[in-house]
Amino acid sequence: MTRQNVSIVLIVVLGALLLAVPALAAALGNPALVGLATRVLIYAIAAASLNLVLGYGGMVSFGHAAFLGVGGYVVGILFHHFRFSEPLFGVIAGSDQLLVVLPAAVLITGILAAGIGALALRTSGVQFIMITLAFAQMLYFFFIALKTYGGDDGLVIRRRSALFDLDMRDDRTFFYVVLGFAVTFFAIYATVIRSRFGLLLGAIRQNESRVAAVGIAPYRYKLAAFVISGMGAGLAGALLANYQRFVSPDMLHWTKSGELMMMVILGGAGTLFGPLFGAAALISLETYLTQWTERWMLILGPVLILIVLFMRGGIAGLIDQLLRRLK
C-alpha cells in the first residue's frame, strides 16, 4: 500500500467512525458520548484554525480564544436581539437562523483578526506571543464590562439557532450538523494548505528573509493566514455557543488559548488531522480525569511538560511512525 492509500483508508475509517457515533453511543448506553464527540469536532475546527498560523505559519498566537469567544458572542448577541425583537444599534435585526449567525460570526471574527493581526504582525517571536495574549485579555475585559449582555455572568441562548426544519434540540441532529460543518471546514482547510498560499506560508516559517529576498512580501501572507485562522476559530466559537447554549467571558480566557495550543501540539503541529486527534485526546482526558479527580490539572500539567520535552510531533507523528513501521 502506498502512503496515499493508507491516508485514504484512514480518512474513510475516521469518517465511518464519526458517522456511527450516535449509533455507538446508543449501543453502549452512553448518550453523553454524542455531546463529547460534538465538542471534539468543534474544538478540532478551532485547533486546526490555530494550527494554520502556529503549525504551518510558525506564528505562535496565544490569543486565539478571543476569536472563539467573539464568534460565540455574535451568536449570543444576535439571538438576544432576536428574542427581544429590538434591533442592534437600531438597525441590525437579531436572528436565530444558523445560516445567518454563522456567516456573521465568521465575518466579524475575520475583521477582528485583521485588526489584531495587522498590529501584532508588526512584531515577531516572543513579542508576538505576548501581544496576541494581551489583545485577547483586552477583549476578555471588554466582555466582562458589557453588562447589557450579561457581563461576568455570560449570556444564555435559550434555543439553538434554527437550520431548515431540523430539530436542533436533539443532540444527535446537532452532532450531524456540526459534523457537516467540520467536514466542509477540513476540506477547505486541506485545499488551503496544499495551495500555493499554503506552501508559501511554510516557506515563510522556515526562512522569512529568503522569502522576502525572492521578492514576496511576507507580511500580507502572514496577515491573510491570521485572518483565515481567526475566521475558523470564530466559526468554532459560534458552533460552541450553539452547542452549550451559553456564552461567557470564560470562552475568551487566556487558559482557553492555552488549551487550543495544547490540542495543536498534542495532536501534532503542522499536520492536517493532528488538531482533531489533539482535541479528541485533550477533551476525553479532561472529561474522564475530572470524573476521577477534581485535581486533574495536577496530572495534566506534568503530562504536557513531558509531551513537549520528549514527544515531538504529537499524536499525528506517532501514527506516522507506526505507519512507516508497517511498511
Binding site: G125, M261, L304, L309
Partner: peptide
C-alpha cells in the same frame, strides 16, 4: 518559543 510557552503553561497549571 512554542515549546517553551507550552512547557511553562503546563507548569502554571501544575
Amino acid at each position: 518559543h512554542l515549546d517553551q510557552v507550552l512547557a511553562t503553561y503546563g507548569l502554571i497549571l501544575f
